[in-house]
């Protein structure tokens, strides 16, 4: 029986990098994202490049009915998975007071609810002849309370704790859970300008998505629990762990607000 690598958020920057990495290893893929058009274009590109089998189905992961439909298709086609990579996630950056209730709900539904749901369902559709590797995408932000990214960081904290717990819970049943905690990912023009806005710190903490995807797959295959890409990020994480969370939140808040002011100022000046 053929088994597949399940990737959610596959048409985004990190999703595409995971898809390319898995395809380059000769694995067959099952991709999902919101837009069928994006998935179709990506699928033909990757099939031409790597000559693997790729199935895609669009799904709005924030909508339980859409998720039901996705898993119904998987059941009908009798698909089995040996890898689940939960990439789909979202942030609406900016002060909490400026966020609408719909935006806050979307962060929670996509980052938390859908990841939990996908993980739970995938366990019932695993290829029982192989190990099941689960990768959840948390963030370095998951380690700290982060002013200006409060809900996002808290949702990533949820994914971090959820993954660590599940890793131990499922250890005996041939399932490994690896949680990826990257710093900023240069995936979109706005993410890239965000990294530039952070200046030197932004540059040294940022790693290329292709590299991150490849290393994360290696870590998952060796059963590692957490992967933080980049030595500097691992040092930051270590230092952050030695300071009380409230103090970290204080410093991060000061820094983000400063960057935001500088960045917004530049936009206003038209630089």
């Amino acid at each position: 029986m053929k088994s597949y690598v399940f990737i959610s958020g596959a048409a985004g920057g990190l999703g595409k990098a995971f898809a390319a990495e898995c395809a380059s290893r000769g694995w067959n893929l099952f991709l999902t994202d919101v837009s069928a058009g994006d998935l179709s274009i990506l699928t033909s590109g990757l099939v031409r490049l790597y000559n693997v089998e790729i199935i895609y189905y669009p799904c709005n992961l924030t909508d339980p009915a859409s998720r039901d439909e996705l898993w119904k298709i998987i059941q009908q086609r009798n698909l089995r998975f040996h890898f689940l990579i939960n990439v789909a996630g979202v942030d609406f950056e900016g002060p909490f007071i400026e966020r609408t209730s719909a935006e806050l709900g979307t962060i929670i539904r996509l980052n938390i609810e859908s990841t939990v749901d996908m993980t739970s369902r995938a366990l019932h559709f695993r290829d029982k002849t192989r190990m099941l590797r689960i990768i959840n995408v948390s963030s370095l932000a998951g380690y700290y309370p982060m002013p200006v990214k409060a809900i996002y960081a808290a949702s990533k904290r949820f994914l971090l704790d959820f993954s660590l717990a599940l890793h131990h819970e499922l250890a005996e049943s041939g399932v490994t859970v690896t949680v990826l905690c990257p710093a900023g990912m240069p995936t979109t023009p706005s993410a890239i300008s965000g990294i530039f806005a952070q200046g030197f710190m932004g540059r040294i903490t940022t790693k290329n998505v292709g590299y991150v995807a490849a290393k994360t797959i290696d870590r998952a295959l060796s059963g590692r629990m957490v992967y933080i890409p980049g030595v500097i990020n691992r040092i930051l994480r270590f230092l952050g762990g030695t300071v009380p969370p409230s103090l970290v939140a204080y410093f991060i808040g000061k820094r983000w607000l400063k960057i935001r002011h500088k960045y917004n100022g530049e936009i206003l000046k038209g630089v």
């Binding site: 048409a11 920057g13 595409k16 990098a17 898809a19 390319a20 994006d38 274009i41 990506l42 033909s44 590109g45 990757l46 490049l49 240069p186 995936t187 890239i192 940022t206 290329n208 998505v209 292709g210 590299y211």
Partner: peptide, 12 residues
Amino acid sequence: SDWYVATEDGYE
């Protein structure tokens, strides 16, 4: 491009 960016076709 400073960073690895994949196009919609999945190519650098």
